[in-house]
Design a protein around this nucleic acid. Structure first.
Length: 867
RNA sequence: GCGGUCGUGGCGGAACUGGCAGACGCACUAGCUUGAGGUGCUAGCGCCGCAAGGCGUGGAGGUUCGAGUCCUCUCGACCGCACCA
């Protein structure tokens, strides 16, 4: 038995001939390569044109907050490993990086530290770029994009004007969050429990402001449909986007306002997905903000006060985020609406749970067939009228009265005039047609997706390139006058309104149409605009004539987009939907040929520690700088890949990093001890190929296969790294035996031929280079190789060499493991069966029993079923 | 409420299409080595049991020669959406 033989081998205490091992000094190695890589700026540069196939790998660009956090490191470690792997496989790789550098934190820092936003931001960028370089990420810095610089945001303005010209950018009134103490607008994220984040006892107010919107809803349907054409995106993200777009098919029905004096506004459009239940409608419910409400309450102070209360309740609930749990309240206006299907008069109510921004802001209430309407009707004692009966399972049976509310579609209409007797689906079709024929409605599709409000009453953003002229109205800044430069030295104190409005030199301009005086737009753009198209700019980052050259973008994007995009799930909706919208718009402009920004998307998991997300308040933040200083960049990066698979949540453990450092030390010492051996000398020796050598060779090729397979498939780098560890463990074991032989003065002082020994070490450096580039390069150099590993070829595995000659397979009796046998790997079924039955343990156990059937799974196991 | 992901040793996690559960790492234990500074090497390590053996992948059933993996029910954790008419 070969297993037992192993134990008889002397386990040497690795004497190493009394020689001290060199310590693995990550700092020394990494500083050395860091400095070398600094010298050569072309090292990671993508070729503009190449005979090699292109590969565009992109990680989401960071906001320059001042320091990288571990989430960044994980994200970039994944992308960098992939980029390096593709490089070594002969691709022309584009792997760029940039800065999403407009946004609020810079303004807050400016107020707190009295540092101009620009200075603060650029300082942070420099610091973070240094961190990235220290971590050894292989970015093509010649293509760096910084969104807060005029060279970049000029093109935000250019795109905006193009959208304006196409009617895709427009202005309308809308509600914003307003903190009375700050006297300014707040982003939704800055509203905490309905109060200002800086004044936690001050409730946020809603204000109506004129805002710029981008008509993303024009693409709603395509954005939804094309999700099916993105098999390379996580199902989760596609589902989230589907829900966000929220397509809903239904019917628009006009109820007439009874006794309307003004014919122009005499109808109340209502949206419903269940027009089949409309004969059961016993009221119409309006959102408190519904335009009709103001008119209906004009002469009734009491009623108006009630409505105000409902409105306040709704706002409160929405701000806290639990509109779903709001206690339903309503008030009867005393007026009536006429159901166009049966001419019936139903009361009009105003209710706090009706949302103005979905559908038409008005609903028909059918208590018998809707949960919410039922609850509301019970509370206010409104009529509940049954108009759908469950379909009897047995046609002979008469339908029974259902439990209310009866909300499923498996039913038949009753008490519904000429539509009685139809099933729900047929009725919806027939009734929608009926409405359209008679001019009071039609089948419609509504979306939850809203047009994108991009106006921000903030300083640190892209100025919206618009002018307001008394004579010519809203006028776009001419292209030749772009960029509209964001002025410096602006007072950004939070005193209300847009800071740019306090800069007369900025505000006062000339109308390009009439040369008369004009006022500049003082709002800036949402920073999501910046990140909606930045990845195109990487293909042509220095272009000052256009956002990018069509051909250059065409080369990298092709017709499928970025080959691999990597980032956090937190961007699953906003950033990724805006990017998709922007791409479709650019395609319609003829700027690009792809309809989607990225063919494949990978969302990495969060990093937690001690069961919670890392946060300053919990004090469980692990700083990348500390880790790099302590264990080195290689260990830090590699740990983020080793702790778990990249798609899963990572539970940070400092001891885990130590484990990686220990492993890298083992590799380093192994090569230190063995690098000097000459392959050439050995080739002449032609040493016998002992079992140990074969074992190493097999393991080596199996490892190459496992690591390569992970890159090609599931990206489970944790198992790739585990495979390399296994290889190294085996190398140590064989090395010990080799020394044992030598010490014993054995004939085979060299158990493993030097040529193989050298191949093993070279391969080790190659396999490690995507995960631990610093050490890999050091090893490469120790092995006498020159140049970057990026230019080296990824090792190929040889299936013949990876193959096991003999395998051990388990033998079960009735599914329970009873013995093991060793057979040739390619032994035919009947041989395996014979061997299993001949096994002594098995013979003893099946003696006297009847063998029902022996099951042989070649190469896997034997299971003998006995009775 | 709807949609999704996930429950495996003391811990992080392996086990791709059903086929030896626990690879690899951490922690722990022992031996050797080193040593005034987070050292290295070797071995052991799911649970019960002296052992033979038995029991084990959140729980209960089922399919199968065989289930962590498939099916049904159920419990729990996390994420997203949410009076969406």
């Amino acid at each position: 038995m070969p297993q037992e033989e192993q134990t008889s081998v002397t386990h040497a205490h690795r004497g190493r001939d009394g020689q001290e091992d060199v310590r693995y000094d990550a700092q020394r190695i990494e500083t050395k390569w860091f400095e070398r890589w600094q010298q050569d700026s072309s090292l990671y540069a993508a070729e503009p044109h190449s005979t090699r196939q292109k590969y565009y790998v992109l990680e989401m660009l960071p906001y320059p907050s001042g320091a990288l956090h571990m989430g960044h490191v994980r994200n970039y470690a994944i992308g960098d490993a992939l980029a390096r792997y593709m490089w070594m496989n002969g691709y022309n790789v584009l792997h760029p990086m940039g800065w999403d550098s407009f946004g609020l934190p810079a303004e807050n820092a400016a107020i707190q530290n009295n540092t101009p936003p620009r200075e603060w931001t650029l300082g942070n960028i420099a610091a973070m770029k240094a961190q990235m370089k220290r971590l050894g990420f292989a970015y093509d810095w010649s293509r760096e994009v910084t969104t807060c610089l005029p060279e970049y945001y000029k093109w935000n303005q250019w795109f905006f004007i193009k959208m304006f010209e196409k009617g895709l950018a427009y202005r309308k009134k809308s509600t914003v969050n307003w903190c009375p103490k700050c006297a300014t607008v707040l982003a939704n994220e800055q509203v905490v429990n309905g109060c200002c984040w800086r004044h936690e006892d001050t409730p946020v107010e809603q204000r109506e402001l004129e805002q710029w919107f981008l008509r993303i809803t024009k693409y709603a349907d395509e954005l939804l449909r094309d999700l099916d054409r993105l098999p390379g995106w996580p199902e989760k993200v596609r589902t989230m986007q589907r829900n966000w777009i929220g397509r809903s098919e239904g019917t628009l029905v006009d109820f007439k306002l009874d006794g309307a004096t003004d014919p122009a506004s005499s109808s109340i459009p209502v949206f419903t997905t269940r027009v089949d239940t409309i004969f059961g409608a016993t009221s119409v419910q309006l959102a408190p903000q519904h335009p009709l409400v103001a008119r209906l309450t004009r002469n009734n102070d009491l009623l108006r006060a009630e409505v105000e209360r409902l409105l306040a309740e709704q706002r409160k609930a929405r701000e806290v985020g639990d509109i779903g749990e709001i206690e339903k309240h309503g008030v009867n206006t005393g007026r009536y609406a006429i159901n166009p299907y049966n001419g019936e008069k139903v009361p009009i109510w105003v209710a706090n749970y009706i949302l103005m921004d979905y559908g038409t802001g008005a609903i028909m209430s059918v208590p018998a067939h809707d949960e919410r309407d039922y609850e509301f009707a019970k509370k206010y004692k409104l009529e509940i009228r049954l108009v759908i009966l469950p379909q009897a399972s047995d046609p002979e049976e008469t339908a029974v009265e259902p439990k209310l509310p009866f909300t499923t579609m498996q039913g038949t209409l009753v008490n519904s005039g000429r539509f009685s007797g139809m099933d729900c689906e047929a009725a919806i079709r027939a009734m929608s047609e009926h409405a359209e024929k008679n001019g009071f409605g039609k089948a419609t599709i509504t979306y939850r997706l809203k047009d994108w409000g991009i106006s921000r009453q903030r300083y640190w953003g892209t100025p919206i390139p618009m002018l307001y002229c008394e004579k010519d109205g809203i006028v776009a800044v001419p292209e030749k006058d772009l960029p509209v430069i964001l002025p410096e030295n602006v007072d950004i104190a939070l005193t209300g309104g847009s800071p740019l409005g306090r800069v007369p030199e900025f505000v006062n301009a000339t109308c390009p149409k009439c040369d008369g005086p004009a006022r500049r737009e003082t709002d800036t753009m949402d920073t999501f605009v910046d990140s909606s198209w930045y990845f195109y700019r990487y293909t042509d980052a220095q272009n000052d004539q256009a956002p990018f050259d069509r051909e250059k973008a065409g080369y990298w994007f092709g017709d499928r987009g970025i080959d691999q995009y990597i980032g956090g799930v937190e961007h699953a909706i906003l950033h990724l939907i805006y990017s998709r919208f922007w791409t479709k718009f650019m395609r319609d402009m003829g700027l690009i040929g792809n309809a989607e920004p990225a063919e494949r998307l990978f969302t990495q998991g969060m990093i937690i520690k001690g069961g919670a997300k890392m946060s300053k308040s919990l004090g469980n933040v692990v700083s990348p700088d500390d880790m790099v200083e302590h264990y080195g960049a290689d260990s830090t990066r590699m740990y983020t890949l080793f702790a778990t698979s990249p798609d899963r949540e990572l539970d940070w453990q400092d001891e885990g990093v130590e484990g990686i450092e220990r492993f890298l030390g083992r590799v380093y010492r192994f090569v230190t001890r063995n690098a000097a051996r000459s392959a050439l000398a050995e080739a002449q020796h032609a040493a016998p190929f002992l079992p140990e050598a074969r074992q190493i060779q097999r393991k080596l090729h199996q490892t190459i296969k496992r690591v390569s397979d992970d890159f090609q498939g599931r990206w489970h780098f944790n198992t790739s790294i585990a495979a390399i560890m296994e290889l190294v463990n085996e190398l140590y074991a064989v090395e010990a035996r080799q020394e044992g032989h030598a010490a014993a003065g054995g004939l085979h002082a060299k158990v493993v031929p030097n040529s193989l020994w050298v191949e093993v070490q070279r391969t080790l450096a190659l396999l490690l280079s995507p995960f631990a580039p610093f050490l890999a390069h050091e090893l490469w150099e120790m092995l006498g190789e020159k140049g970057s590993l990026l230019r080296a070829s990824w090792p190929k595995y040889d299936p013949a060499l990876a193959k096991e000659e003999e395998i051990e397979i388990p033998v079960q009796i009735n599914g329970k493991l009873r013995s093991r046998i060793v057979v040739p790997a390619d032994a035919p079924e009947d041989v395996v069966r014979e061997r299993a039955l001949a096994d002594e343990k098995i013979r003893a156990m099946v003696a006297g029993k009847q063998i029902v059937k022996p099951i042989v799974v070649p190469g896997k196991l034997v299971n003998i079923v006995v009775r």
